[in-house]
Amino acid sequence: MQLKVFTKSSSVHDFSFPHITSSNFKIKNGVAVNLHPPYHGQGRKGFLKDEETQIRFIENPNCERLMVTRNGGLPEDMLVEILSKLPVKSLIRLKCVCKPYCGQKLSLYPDQTLSNLSHHDIDPQIPVLRQIMGPHDGLFCLYGYNQIFLWNPATRETMALPKCRNPMLMRPFDPGAYYCNIGFGLDPMNNDYKLVLIRTLWDDETHLFYECFHVSMYNLSTNSWKDFEVVELTQYSLHKRSDSLYSNGICYWSAIRDNKDHQVILSFHMSDEILREIEGPNIPESMSADLGLYNGSLSLLLIDTV
């Protein structure tokens, strides 16, 4: 057996996130996060914190304006500073302080205490789990049977994403008819968590795959899906079990380029929302290729059974 590692130069993308694979289920970082609004005056922002960025703000247009005066005369940035230094448990308790502090959606908060956490039970409400992605800032994405969830073990909250409609198949949802490849991560430009769903569609009439993907994206700040035009990517096919790799604002998948019978890497930029092929080595279809991060750079681990 032969092992090869292909590394894409980190000068192309500045990878700064620690290497966390979807199967690595420990919480690695101090963690953090945001989302809806709780603690600020303007009310349309949530705060989040992670190891590298300190505090960031996320717009949340779903939130009502909060009352600016609800901070005992302390300036808003001081209030955020103070609250961001509280452990998760305290922040959750503060949901009872007043209504604006009590969010409607998933709440995610900074916490150093999580670094001691080694395992956590998944909410039993989540049905048959197929795939786990993350964590990104303490937030996991769980792909259950016919449903996607976001889960924050620190706050013990799970949120079921709204269903993403299927534009191609008008008949009832049949999970066996097609499969999904999911990418999940932060859009660093807009400070929003996004989930990209690439669906390979199956036509029951012809018993063939449609010659295109359908790409949809979910934004956490608006809690809504956005459909892209159906992407004519006839030259690519994604593996049914191809896990995505997220790094620094970009999701990657390995895919097969049909006409050339070799493997390529597809990337989806969370910020500019474009799916594209990135330059890579010429990998024969017969080799198994796993995406990963190696010394902070995007890498492909190739296993060749000689």
Partner: peptide
């Protein structure tokens, strides 16, 4: 933050002068 960390909801309300609207 250390003072508020393990305190009750009522204590935090008093600290920041927040009225309970529940």
């Amino acid at each position: 933050a250390n003072r508020l960390k393990n305190k009750s909801v009522e204590y935090v309300r008093a600290f920041f002068g927040i009225e309970n609207d529940f």
